[in-house]
Amino acid sequence: MELISRNLVNIAAIKAAVEGAEKLTAAQLEFAKDRILMGTERKTMFISEESKKLTAYHESGHAIVAFNTEGAHPIHKATIMPRGSALGMVTQLPSSDETSISKKQLLARLDVCMGGRVAEELIFGQDHVTTGASSDLHTATELAQYMVSNCGMSDAIGPMHINERPSSELQSRVDAEVMKLLREAYDRVKALLKKHEKALHVLANALLEYETLSAEEMKRILHPYREGRQPEQQEVVQEEGELVLA
């Protein structure tokens, strides 16, 4: 944690020096925070409009699930600006230090992982889903495996820690439980995104326009849909660099 704090201040200080600022500002610290959490922006990378659109819906799927799933970490930002090795991402931050994690929270993480893939499938069709969800699925599979094998969170397996070389019979049962957790998460997310499809469209369009949105900006954009108001009653505009609803 101390190392991360030093890195954050160092990156912010370099940013301030480049900008000719005498003191660190909140904007420079935010820039440093994003650099650490999300990686370096690749502004010169060419991305086709089709790929941008798909990425916008993929990341919006993650965000909509996180906003509407109890136990999910609060969202920090969503972006379709390529950073590091990713074409886009949604970053989440825990609201407090975690010493232990509940099953509800782990299931929420599974659901958020599924959000991107399900959004792609819902909007573009099964034949047009991409490899962009491979990392999400890898994370979800490892998490489900951890829940079953290490945490005793499967009724079928029971409260036991499974060693590295279980019998073939036990391994088959574990695999079936992992698949069950993943399939249930997929089904929950598919139902949720169908229910919130209008919000999915409006958030994806906002990402296409602004590329990066903070949690507060996303909440303002999505607020009418949480309240049951119609999208045509609100227009997203930008004033002095800040998103507002008009």
Rank of each mutant, 00 (worst) to 15 (best):
L8R: 14
E70N: 01
A156Q: 09
K33P: 02
H138M: 11
G125C: 09
A17R: 08
V90W: 01
E209D: 08
G84R: 14
H138K: 15
M89P: 02
S135L: 05
I47A: 02
S96T: 12
L107S: 09
V178P: 02
S168Q: 14
L208R: 04
K77N: 02
S149V: 09
K103D: 10
S100K: 08
V9K: 06
E2K: 09
S48W: 04
D155H: 11
Q92F: 08
E217G: 00
G115W: 10
S149G: 03
I221D: 01
E197R: 12
G20C: 06
R188G: 01
A27F: 07
E239G: 05
A215L: 04
Q92L: 13
T212R: 04
D155V: 14
S102W: 04
N163D: 13
A27E: 15
C151E: 12
L245S: 02
L143P: 01
L87F: 15
G88K: 03
H138E: 12
Y146E: 08
A185H: 01
I162K: 06
K103S: 00
E121A: 09
K103Q: 10
G115T: 07
G88N: 07
T130E: 00
M179A: 10
E209I: 10
K33S: 07
T91Y: 01
M160G: 00
G115P: 00
L54I: 15
Y210G: 02
I80Q: 01
L203M: 06
R165Y: 03
L193Q: 01
M45W: 13
E177M: 00
T131E: 02
S167V: 09
Q171A: 15
M160F: 08
R226C: 04
H138D: 06
R117Q: 15
D136M: 11
T99D: 06
P224D: 04
A144T: 05
L8T: 08
Q92D: 08
E240L: 10
A204W: 09
F31M: 03
K104F: 06
R220K: 15
K180F: 15
D127Y: 03
G115E: 08
E217Y: 07
G158D: 01
N205C: 05
K198R: 05
A215S: 11
P94C: 11
D34I: 02
L192Q: 04
G39Q: 04
V244Y: 12
S214N: 12
